[in-house]
């Protein structure tokens, strides 16, 4: 009977069914409470761990909230200038084609200042994996409008809501790169529920597996929250994300095996 089981009986190493991977360091994450970055970091490191790739992996940290990703991911890492992570990753993968290389970038980094590097690395079909965390805002600098900020969405530089007439339209980078011949696997995921995290992890695993086959760019967007920037509680921001971000940034695969599986 369950009531006869003591804590001593259950808290044994052999009974562990889930614990943080050793590929995440013990440093306290610098992210706000409830931020999806931590989960995205962890599932990426779980994949690298489960595939036994730690000794072959080189990661690139961007500029933005995840600038300190190298403090948390226990793999060799380089920190890139703002937006340039795909340039670093390109050179690393070209010079060391048998390594597993990923860039981890936010939407300000990847979709604004690094647009050229992103598109050209994708178009050349570079054999690395991009993890693109999109929370529709510049988090690190205090919640300014990003290229991905939704229409009407408020930020510190669009305090009355994003007006596409004067501020331009939100940019769907993932749909954009899916149309380039150099991308092989392009998908959009989220990490706000256990089911979403499991799916996102599968997608990352697929991307890293495909990278071993050198078939071209693998690109995983993770739509995430920014409760500080959005000025909501973490739980509310996840709800808001489902109701507002997902309709514009729908989850699911966009390109599989080099073929579009969704109209873009």
């Amino acid at each position: 009977m369950s009531d006869t089981i003591t804590k001593e009986q259950i808290f044994k190493p052999e009974n562990i069914v889930y614990k943080k991977t050793d590929l995440m360091t013990d440093n306290v994450l610098s992210y706000c409470p409830g931020c999806g970055h931590g989960t995205a970091h962890r599932i990426l490191m779980e994949v690298i761990d489960e595939m036994g790739l730690q000794s072959k992996t080189i990661g690139i940290a961007p500029v933005g909230c995840s600038v300190l990703a190298y403090e948390f991911m226990n793999v060799d890492m380089q920190q890139a200038a703002h937006g340039r992570a795909p340039a670093l990753a390109t050179a690393i993968k070209r010079l060391l084609p048998d390594k597993t290389v990923f860039s981890y970038q936010g939407d300000g980094d990847l979709a604004a200042i690094g647009t050229a590097e992103t598109i050209h690395a994708c178009n050349r079909g570079e054999n690395f994996t991009v993890i693109f965390v999109n929370n529709g805002i510049y988090g690190m600098t205090g919640g300014q409008m990003a290229p991905t900020t939704l229409e009407g969405m408020k930020s510190s530089t669009s305090p009355y809501g994003r007006d596409p007439q004067s501020m331009g339209h939100p940019l769907k980078m993932t749909e954009l790169v899916a149309q380039l011949p150099g991308t092989y696997y392009v998908t959009r995921q989220a990490v706000h529920t256990p089911a979403a995290v499991r799916k996102a992890k599968k997608a990352i695993r697929k991307a890293i597996e495909l990278q071993q086959q050198k078939v071209g760019m693998t690109f995983v967007e993770v739509v995430s929250n920014c409760n500080s920037g959005w000025k909501m509680t973490p739980v509310d921001s996840n709800k808001w994300m489902v109701e507002n971000m997902f309709p514009f940034y729908p989850l699911g695969d966009i390109k599989v095996d080099g073929k579009l599986v969704k109209e873009v």
């Binding site: 340039r84 340039a87 050179a91 690393i92 050229a116 590097e117 050209h120």
Partner: peptide
């Protein structure tokens, strides 16, 4: 490799030199 810009080229150096 012919890069897409000088900006990309110098950052490719960063990646390569870091290795």
């Amino acid at each position: 490799l012919q890069a897409e810009s000088e900006v990309a080229a110098i950052n490719m150096l960063y990646g390569g030199a870091g290795c």
